[in-house]
Amino acid sequence: MGSVRTNRYSIVSSEEDGMKLATMAVANGFGNGKSKVHTRQQCRSRFVKKDGHCNVQFINVGEKGQRYLADIFTTCVDIRWRWMLVIFCLAFVLSWLFFGCVFWLIALLHGDLDTDYKDDDDKSKVSKACVSEVNSFTAAFLFSIETQTTIGYGFRCVTDECPIAVFMVVFQSIVGCIIDAFIIGAVMAKMAKPKKRNETLVFSHNAVIAMRDGKLCLMWRVGNLRKSHLVEAHVRAQLLKSRITSEGEYIPLDQIDINVGFDSGIDRIFLVSPITIVHEIDEDSPLYDLSKQDIDNADFEIVVILEGMVEATAMTTQCRSSYLANEILWGHRYEPVLFEEKHYYKVDYSRFHKTYEVPNTPLCSARDLAEKKYILSNANSFCYENEVALTSKEEEEDSENGVPESTSTDSPPGIDLHNQASVPLEPRPLRRESEIGSRR
Rank of each mutant, 00 (worst) to 15 (best):
G18M: 06
R156Y: 03
R226Y: 06
F300V: 02
L369Q: 02
I328A: 00
R8S: 14
E247W: 07
T150M: 03
K195E: 06
F137H: 02
Y117V: 00
I277G: 01
F171A: 04
L240R: 03
M84I: 07
G18C: 04
E400F: 10
F137Q: 06
I244F: 12
F352Q: 01
V86A: 14
T316N: 13
C89L: 13
L425W: 05
F203M: 08
T361D: 02
T316G: 09
Y153C: 08
V304S: 14
K241D: 07
P362M: 02
T150C: 08
K193R: 04
E283I: 07
A25L: 05
Y323V: 07
L113I: 09
M309F: 14
S392D: 13
V347A: 15
C364P: 01
K195V: 11
K346W: 04
I174Q: 03
V12P: 13
G331D: 02
A325M: 03
I179E: 05
S242R: 08
S406R: 08
Q420Y: 10
S3L: 03
C76P: 14
H332P: 00
E327L: 00
V56P: 02
I179M: 10
I275R: 06
S246F: 05
V134H: 01
V170E: 01
F171L: 07
T159H: 03
G31P: 12
R236D: 03
A325T: 09
F182Y: 12
E301W: 02
R428I: 04
T115Y: 07
I145F: 04
Q255E: 08
D160G: 04
T317V: 14
E311Q: 08
L239P: 01
V131M: 14
V61T: 10
G154A: 03
V86Y: 03
F141T: 14
K64P: 05
D180Q: 09
I256Y: 08
T245N: 14
V187W: 09
N297Y: 06
L94D: 01
S264C: 12
S434C: 06
D289A: 10
H343W: 04
K64T: 11
C364R: 02
S365R: 01
G331I: 01
R333L: 14
I256S: 09
I87G: 15
N198V: 09
V134P: 01
I183F: 11
N32F: 05
V126W: 07
K49H: 04
I59A: 15
M24W: 04
I256P: 00
G154C: 05
V26I: 08
G331L: 01
K372R: 12
T159F: 01
V175R: 01
E16W: 03
F352H: 00
L201S: 07
Q66N: 13
V278R: 05
T138A: 12
E327W: 02
A70C: 13
D296M: 08
I244N: 15
K372C: 11
K373S: 14
V272P: 07
I266C: 09
N7I: 04
G152I: 03
Q238P: 00
E15H: 07
G414Q: 14
V303A: 09
K20R: 13
L417V: 13
D282L: 10
W330D: 00
A22T: 13
V166M: 11
Y153K: 06
D122V: 03
V102E: 00
F73T: 12
R226S: 09
L230W: 08
R221C: 00
N135Y: 12
G100F: 00
K49T: 04
D71N: 15
L338E: 08
R80H: 06
E161C: 02
K50F: 01
G185K: 02
W81Y: 06
A129V: 04
T147C: 01
K36F: 09
K196H: 08
A189P: 08
P362K: 02
L90I: 06
Y345E: 03
E232N: 13
E283Q: 09
F262I: 14
T317Y: 11
Y250V: 14
K227R: 06
N7H: 12
K193M: 06
R40V: 12
V37R: 12
S204R: 00
T74N: 12
T200W: 08
D112V: 00
H418R: 09
E385F: 03
G18A: 05
I251P: 15
V102W: 10
D282F: 03
A107N: 05
V423P: 15
S399P: 08
I256D: 05
V166S: 01
K20H: 12
V166R: 02
P252I: 15
E357G: 06
E307L: 08
L201F: 03
G248Q: 14
P424H: 05
V158K: 02
V77Q: 05
D78P: 09
S10W: 02
A237R: 00
F88S: 06
L108G: 11
V423H: 10
D299E: 12
L369T: 02
C157Y: 13
T6F: 05
K292M: 12
R431K: 13
A389I: 15
F171N: 02
M24E: 15
T409N: 07
C177M: 10
I375E: 14
E397C: 08
K20M: 10
M191Q: 04
K20C: 09
K215S: 03
V208W: 01
A22R: 13
L109A: 15
N326L: 03
G33Q: 12
D267G: 06
I151E: 03
S408G: 09
A421R: 10
F47N: 02
S285T: 00
